[in-house]
């Protein structure tokens, strides 16, 4: 049964001056889905993520979260993990994770004391254990590897129980081995916490192995004399059937097919 979409974009345009980045994007995202967004560089993948995040306002169009218009500002209902700079360098692992709880419970000082602090600490530690950082509570991000920093960024975001988790090329800077570990982690978290995830990536394999739905952004039309006058939109929207374990699904067949598709469109 098709549930109401958790996030809905209707006729969304993003323009910078006379440069059109996204045109006429219509998109409904169902709760519990894992949407991968792929596309060539400059196709507006990150712009799409930024308007969902509330960091930027669309030039035209309407965005609804749970049926209500999205406030044009970032908020705790949408969590985010960037490729870099996602954690606070001056806070320890535990401090980074508790930050979201402290902001919500102490508007003036943004710090907790006594039993409230103990409760937040326990919740943060449980979250950190879920992402495999239970042994590095008092380290600063600079002391962590890239993969551990991203684990921390995920824990930091998830502790707010966001309606949607947005990932902006979260594993792009990691080694292949670490990246595989992170894939396993994010898949587990997605299942255990019943998350709705939108992930921008340039890695096709990653998009297909993780996603339940793959969205390819590209320009439908191309004017060689004014390439900036046409924006990108969703040219492919593939719903992947993942009844079996996603690792045993057949992403490879789709993958090779999609590579030729995207090469043609590029």
């Amino acid at each position: 049964m098709p549930a109401n979409p958790i996030l809905s974009l209707q006729n969304v345009w993003v323009e910078y001056g006379d440069k059109i980045v996204l045109e006429k994007v219509d998109l409904d995202i169902q709760p519990g889905s894992f949407v991968s967004i792929i596309g060539p560089s400059g196709a507006g993948k990150s712009s799409l993520l930024r308007i969902i995040l509330g960091q930027e306002r669309p030039t035209r169009g309407r965005i609804e979260l749970d049926g209500a218009p999205l406030s044009p500002e970032c908020g705790p209902d949408r969590g985010v993990v960037f490729q870099k700079y996602s954690v606070f360098p001056h806070l320890t692992v535990l401090g980074n994770t508790m930050f979201g709880l402290e902001c919500a419970q102490a508007p003036l000082t943004a710090r907790l004391f006594g039993s409230a602090r103990r409760a937040a600490r326990a919740e943060a530690i449980a979250m950190l254990q879920a992402v495999g950082l239970g042994d590095t509570l008092d380290q600063y991000p600079a002391q962590l590897s890239g993969g551990m920093q991203q684990r921390l960024a995920i824990a930091q975001a998830l502790i707010k129980r966001p309606r949607i988790l947005l990932l902006d090329e979260p594993f792009g800077a990691l080694d292949p081995g670490i990246r595989a570990d992170m894939h396993a982690l994010i898949r587990t978290l997605w299942r255990d916490y019943a998350l709705t995830i939108v992930m921008v990536t340039h890695d096709l394999r990653e998009a297909f192995t993780l996603g339940t739905r793959v969205l390819a952004l590209d320009k439908r039309r191309h004017d060689p004399h004014a390439p900036h006058r046409f924006g990108a939109t969703a040219v492919y929207d593939l719903i992947l059937d993942k009844k079996s374990d996603p690792e045993e699904a057949e992403p490879k067949a789709i993958l090779s097919e999609e590579i030729t598709l995207s090469q043609e469109s590029a």
Partner: peptide, 27 residues
């Protein structure tokens, strides 16, 4: 300071004041 940090703080529920005292001030 990286814009990502300020955005991240907002997604964690921080207000302008909280960003000032907990993100900008210590750094």
């Amino acid at each position: 300071l990286p814009a990502e940090q300020i955005v991240k703080a907002q997604t964690l529920g921080a207000s302008s004041w909280q960003i000032m005292i907990r993100v900008a001030l210590p750094q």
